[in-house]
Amino acid sequence: MHSNPQQPPQGYPPPYPQTVVVQKKGGGCLKALLIGAAVLAGLIVLGTILKGGGQSDTQASLTDTPEHATQTHKAKKPQVPGLGDVVKDGKFAFKVTKVEKGLSQVGEGFTVSKAQGQYVLIHLTVKNIGDEAQMFSDSAQKLIDAKGRTFDADSGAAALGLKDSNAFLNNINPGNSVNGILLFDVPKDVRLKAVELHDSLFSDGVTVSLAR
């Protein structure tokens, strides 16, 4: 006679109920809950990052728009000096005070000079800001028109026809200043753009706008 293996022998208490399966089920549920919570937290963090990145991209795109770049470029564009502005080149400080044009001749009698086109007179003040004497000469100065052409000063006509030229080989001591006139012979239909002023033939020069 065989005893049932599932039945305890007579005289012994029944074994404790097995809880292994219950514990496994309980552990699986807890693990699932933890994984779900972790996934949810990850999605929240990812959403926050993507949202922040989108705002940064939008702000960057607004900053980098062509209109903004153009405004920045305009703000940084330097202003070209004009009439009444003091500019410096080497040992000289210049200030253009007046422009005359349309003169057909300068001087009187034996000192008269007639223009091939028209005479343009550039009135200016020249001051020596260096620590030694410097020669000011109109031959170092250039007139520029709207087409980009450059014109040399007419030293002969200025020396003969302009009493107050002071622009032909005038030696200026430190701290002194003179009022001079530059004379240019240019076409009658010329459109003036600027005058380029130098303290010598070999200096870099500085440009003063004459456009109006």
Rank of each mutant, 00 (worst) to 15 (best):
S3F: 15
Q7C: 07
P8R: 13
P9A: 09
Q10F: 06
Y12R: 09
P15R: 06
P17H: 06
V22E: 14
V22I: 11
G27Y: 14
K31C: 08
K31F: 08
A32N: 08
L33C: 09
L34T: 06
A37D: 06
A38M: 12
V39D: 05
G42R: 01
I49F: 13
I49V: 15
L50T: 09
G52V: 14
G52Q: 15
G53F: 07
Q55V: 05
Q59I: 07
A60R: 12
S61Y: 10
T63S: 13
T63A: 15
D64W: 12
E67C: 02
H68P: 00
A69R: 13
A69T: 05
T70F: 12
T70L: 14
Q71V: 11
H73T: 12
H73R: 14
H73D: 12
K74T: 03
K74E: 11
A75K: 11
K76Y: 07
K77Q: 15
P78E: 03
Q79S: 11
V86M: 04
K88P: 01
K88I: 10
K88V: 13
D89E: 07
G90R: 04
F92I: 01
F94Q: 01
G102F: 08
L103H: 10
S104A: 14
V106W: 00
V106C: 00
G109H: 03
T111E: 08
T111K: 13
Q118S: 09
I122N: 00
H123G: 00
T125N: 10
V126K: 01
G130Y: 05
G130V: 01
E132P: 00
A133D: 09
Q134M: 06
S137T: 12
D138A: 08
S139M: 07
A140W: 03
L143S: 03
L143C: 05
D145N: 12
G148I: 04
G148Y: 04
F151K: 07
D154R: 09
S155L: 09
A157K: 04
L160V: 03
G161N: 00
K163N: 09
D164E: 13
D164Y: 06
A167Y: 01
P174H: 08
G175R: 05
G175V: 05
N176W: 09
N179Y: 00
L182D: 02
F184R: 03
D185R: 00
P187M: 05
K188C: 01
D189E: 08
K193M: 08
K193D: 15
V195D: 00
L201D: 14
S203P: 06
D204G: 07
D204M: 04
D204N: 11
G205L: 03
G205D: 03
G205Y: 07
V206K: 04
T207Y: 05
L210C: 03
R212Q: 13
